[in-house]
Simulated scan of single mutants.
Amino acid sequence: MHEEMQRVAQVREPVERAKAASTLIGDYQGRLIELSRVRREAIEEAAASGMTQSEIATRLGVSRGRIGQLAAQGPPPERAFFGTDLMTISLGGKYEAGKAEDENRSEVVVREDLQNFDRLRKLLATLKLDANYEVIPPSGMVNLNRDNHVVVCGPRLSPIIAQVLEGDDYLRFEKDRAWHLVDLKTEQRFRSPLDEDGTAGDFGYLARLPRLDGRGTFLYAAGIHAIGANGVVHFLENNLPELYKEVRTRRFSTLISCRYDPKTLEVLESKRVTPLYRHEG
């Protein structure tokens, strides 16, 4: 840390020195937020193991009242489920409908996915994380080799995503007369109510999957239909603390069912319909 500050202080041009200092301040602030999260989680774990606040305070060399303050400071532990810095949410893009191939066609995102970004952004804000989004081009090419990344894009729109999903030994997207999801362990097939009888419901896939470079993971959500991903986001909004306690930042996959208001597309209910399949033993 001292070397970093020395390097900034030695920048000769004043404006460039100020820019370098601002960048380093932002980096340190991000580290402080994450460290406060780690401390809060550690105190909660110690309390859950049976230690009293007085015992924890003695071990840390602070007052009992200070322990109560520390336990309330910083973002909640489940922040780590997403990341530690600015989040990028990649949304699947399609070409604008109704135009010939030789025309200039814009890349568009369906309304449901824009709603997903808005709700994820609000959820992340409660965890002291900021977010922006990018549109995956219709070619489906997306850079998966980065930290703090969430992908909301079905395998139909991205061959790279489809390739990664092939590595899940538990759950799979498949297609016969219609796209559906399959639990490979129980051989149960989950077909969208939209395709079966037009009922306002769907299934979504939620997972933490490996990056192509093998140096990390990314979060992934997709539905049989676009609304299925909304069900996944609804599930995260209502179950994140419990989900984090189960899987932490390890790789997993599971399926989520949802039902929604067909007029507003507002998800009314979401629930897990398969086990939390752990990919790391």
Rank of each mutant, 00 (worst) to 15 (best):
R66N: 13
G68K: 04
Q69Y: 07
L70I: 09
A71K: 09
Q73C: 12
Q73W: 12
Q73K: 10
G74D: 00
P76G: 07
E78N: 01
L86G: 06
T88Y: 01
I89K: 05
S90W: 01
S90P: 06
S90F: 02
L91V: 06
G92Y: 00
G93Q: 10
K94E: 13
K94F: 13
K94H: 14
Y95T: 08
A97F: 08
G98D: 03
G98F: 03
K99W: 10
K99H: 11
A100F: 13
A100S: 10
E101C: 11
D102E: 10
D102C: 09
D102H: 12
E103V: 06
N104P: 10
R105K: 13
R105T: 03
S106R: 09
V108S: 04
V109F: 00
R111W: 05
E112S: 11
F117R: 01
F117E: 04
K122A: 14
L124Y: 01
A125I: 00
T126R: 09
L127K: 07
D130I: 06
D130V: 05
A131N: 03
E134S: 10
I136G: 02
I136S: 06
G140H: 02
N145P: 03
R146H: 09
H149S: 04
R156A: 14
R156C: 06
I161W: 03
Q163E: 11
L165K: 04
E166T: 12
D168Q: 01
Y170G: 12
K175R: 13
R177V: 15
R177H: 12
W179N: 02
W179I: 10
V182C: 04
Q188W: 04
R191V: 15
L194K: 07
D195W: 08
D197S: 13
T199L: 14
